[in-house]
C-alpha cells in the first residue's frame, strides 16, 4: 500500500478562480489505475462532506479519449502510449507528490476542476471530417481496392481518440496532430478523395478559428499521444494544404454536387 500527496487543481466553475489543493491519498494499491486512485480520494472527500474532484472518464480501457489529466507535467502521466485510465499506480513510488492539472489551452476552457470543454475538436471534425456516401443498394465489399500499406497508414491515423493530449503537450497549444490525423485517415483512402481538398482547407481553417497555436515541430505531441499518432500525418496534411491551395476551385454549387 502506498501513501501519496496529491496537488490537484480545483476550480468550481468555468469563470471561477481556481487553485491547487493538497490531498493525502492513503492505502493506494499499486494495482489501481490512476482514476481508481482518484475514486478512492473522492470517496474520502464525500465522507468528509467535501466536494469530490471532478474529472472526465468513460470507458476506462484506453479507447474512448475521455480521460484528460496532466500528471506531473505530462499528459496522461509518465507511461508512453498509455491513457490516464490505463496508467497504474505502480508507475509511482510510495511517498511521491503528484501534481494533477487540467489540459491548458484557450480552446479547452476548464468547466470544473480537471474537466475541460473539448468541443473545439468536434467543430474541427464537423468542418470536414466526413465522406459522401452513395445512396442505393450496397456495392460489393471488395469493389474498392485499398492497398495494405495505405490501409495500415489510414488505420494508424484513425487510432486517434481525440483526447487532446497533443494540444496539452504542445508548447504552442497546437491541435495540428489531432487535425492531421483526422485529415489523413480519410485522405489516405479512396472513399475520402471527393472531399479531400475542401476537407483539409475547412479543417485547418476551423483549427485556426478555435485559436489553437501553430506547429513549430517540437514533436512533443507525438511523444504524448496515447495512440502514438505520428507527426508524419502533419507533413501529409501540410502537403494536402499546398495541393488544395493550388487545385481548389471553391465551393461547388449544390445542384452540381447533388447525385
Amino acid at each position: 500500500m502506498m501513501r501519496l500527496t496529491l496537488r490537484v487543481w480545483r476550480q468550481p466553475g468555468p469563470d471561477a478562480r481556481g487553485e491547487f489543493r493538497t490531498y493525502i491519498a492513503n492505502g493506494v494499491s499499486e494495482h489501481m489505475s490512476f482514476l481508481e486512485m482518484l475514486d478512492v480520494v473522492n470517496e474520502d472527500l464525500l465522507v468528509r462532506g467535501d466536494e469530490p474532484i471532478a474529472f472526465d472518464h468513460d470507458c476506462r480501457e484506453g479507447i474512448c479519449g475521455s480521460c484528460a489529466l496532466m500528471i506531473n507535467g505530462l499528459p496522461h502521466g509518465p507511461k508512453r502510449a498509455t491513457t490516464a485510465c490505463q496508467l497504474h499506480m505502480r508507475s509511482f513510488r510510495d511517498g511521491d507528490t503528484i501534481t494533477v492539472e487540467p489540459w491548458r489551452a484557450r480552446a479547452f476552457p476548464v468547466l470544473r476542476d480537471l474537466i475541460v470543454d473539448r468541443s473545439a475538436f468536434d467543430r474541427i471534425i464537423a468542418s470536414g471530417g466526413f465522406v459522401s456516401a452513395p445512396t442505393g443498394s450496397a456495392q460489393d465489399a471488395n469493389a474498392i481496392l485499398v492497398s495494405k500499406d495505405r490501409s495500415d497508414l489510414a488505420m494508424d491515423a484513425a487510432a486517434c481518440i481525440g483526447c487532446g493530449a497533443c494540444v496539452a503537450a504542445c508548447p504552442n497549444g497546437s491541435a495540428i496532430l489531432f487535425t492531421s490525423a483526422k485529415v489523413a485517415h480519410l485522405g489516405l483512402l479512396p472513399q475520402g478523395q471527393p472531399e479531400r481538398d475542401r476537407r483539409v482547407l475547412g479543417m485547418v481553417r476551423q483549427m485556426d478559428l478555435e485559436e489553437f497555436g501553430g506547429c513549430t515541430l517540437f514533436e512533443e505531441c507525438e511523444a504524448a499521444c496515447p495512440k502514438e499518432i505520428s507527426v508524419e500525418n502533419i507533413a501529409r496534411m501540410n502537403r494536402d494544404v499546398l495541393r488544395a491551395t493550388l487545385r481548389d476551385r471553391g465551393q461547388v454549387p449544390v445542384e452540381v454536387a447533388g447525385g
Binding site: L74, T99, R104, E220
Partner: peptide, 8 residues
C-alpha cells in the same frame, strides 16, 4: 502549467 515536462 504549474508543471510541464519536455519529453523529446
Amino acid at each position: 502549467y504549474a508543471r510541464h515536462e519536455y519529453q523529446v
